[in-house]
Computed example of a mutant assay.
Amino acid sequence: MPEIVELPDRPYVGVRGAITMNTIPVVADRIGEIAGWLLGRGAAIAGAPFLRYESFDTEGDGLVMQAGVPVAGPVEVEGDYFAAVLPAGRYATLTHRGHFDGLVEATRVLLAWGEEQGLKWDMTEGDGAEHWGCRLEVYNTDPRVENDPANFLTDLRFRLS
C-alpha cells in the first residue's frame, strides 16, 4: 500500500547517462562500481543504492537517469562521478517485492494512487519531456546475498511538490 513519508536531505555519489529504456543497464550496472570505488576510498555508505530518473521523453523512449549510492558525508569525486544531494521533502512511496520486471506495474500503481489522492508530483513538462525533481527506485536487497528475485525489495519514492 502506498504511503507518504517525510525524508531528509541525503548526500550521494552518482553517475548520469542519457539512455533509452533498452539501455538502462549502461547506467544501472554501475552501482556496484560506485560502491566499490567509495569503499576503496574509505567513504561510509549510508543507505541502499538507487536509480534516479531525471527526465523521460514524452514522444519517445529516451531518458536521463542516474545511478547513486548514499554516503555519510562529503566525498571528493573524480572522472564522471559527481556528488549531489537527494532533496528533503514529502515522498509518495511504495515497496515492490519481486523481480525488477515488476517495477513497471508498481510504478503504474503508485502514479494511479497519487492521482486518486489528488497529489501533485515534483515534476514539470517542457522541451518534449517530463522533468522529475526526485523520482527514485531504491534497491534494498543485495543480490549477492539474496539471489532469489522473488524476494527482492525495491522502494519507489516519488517526491511531491
Rank of each mutant, 00 (worst) to 15 (best):
E3C: 08
R97C: 05
H131Y: 08
Y91N: 05
I24K: 06
E115G: 11
A129F: 10
W113I: 07
L94W: 10
P11I: 00
V104F: 13
G73S: 14
Y139T: 01
H96D: 01
G60L: 14
R135S: 15
V138Y: 08
A72I: 04
L156N: 05
D9Q: 10
T58I: 15
L160G: 07
P143S: 09
V138W: 09
A129P: 05
E130H: 15
P11W: 07
G126E: 07
V69H: 01
R41V: 03
D142L: 06
L51D: 08
P87E: 04
W113Q: 14
P143N: 11
E76A: 14
W113T: 04
L7E: 05
G32S: 07
E6D: 13
E78W: 01
V15G: 02
V109P: 06
P143D: 10
V27E: 01
V85I: 09
E130S: 14
I31D: 10
R16N: 09
K120I: 02
I31Q: 12
V64D: 12
M65F: 08
R90K: 12
W121N: 01
A72T: 04
A92T: 03
K120R: 15
G36V: 00
P74S: 11
T141H: 04
E125S: 14
G40D: 12
I24P: 07
L7C: 01
A84E: 15
G60W: 14
L63F: 13
T154V: 09
D122K: 06
G126L: 11
L160V: 03
A28M: 11
D142H: 07
G102H: 11
R108F: 04
G73N: 06
T95K: 04
D57M: 09
E137N: 13
L119S: 06
E115W: 02
P11G: 04
P143Y: 13
W132D: 09
G14N: 08
P70G: 06
D61H: 12
A84I: 00
G60E: 12
A129I: 00
L63E: 08
R135E: 06
G62E: 15
V75P: 04
R30Y: 05
F56T: 10
Y139M: 08
R16G: 03
V138S: 03
G68P: 07
L156M: 04
D9I: 02
L153H: 14
L7Y: 00
L110R: 04
N140E: 15
L94K: 06
A18C: 08
P149K: 13
G14H: 02
P143Q: 14
V145W: 09
A150Q: 10
A46C: 01
P49D: 11
I45H: 06
A84S: 15
I34E: 01
E54K: 15
R10S: 12
G128C: 10
G36L: 02
V71R: 01
L7F: 02
F100Q: 13
T107H: 13
G128W: 12
A83I: 00
M65A: 14
E54G: 11
L86C: 10
Y139W: 09
R10F: 00
E115V: 12
H131N: 13
L110P: 05
C134Y: 09
L7P: 04
W121P: 07
A112D: 15
P70Q: 07
A67K: 02
E76L: 02
V64H: 08
G17N: 09
I19W: 09
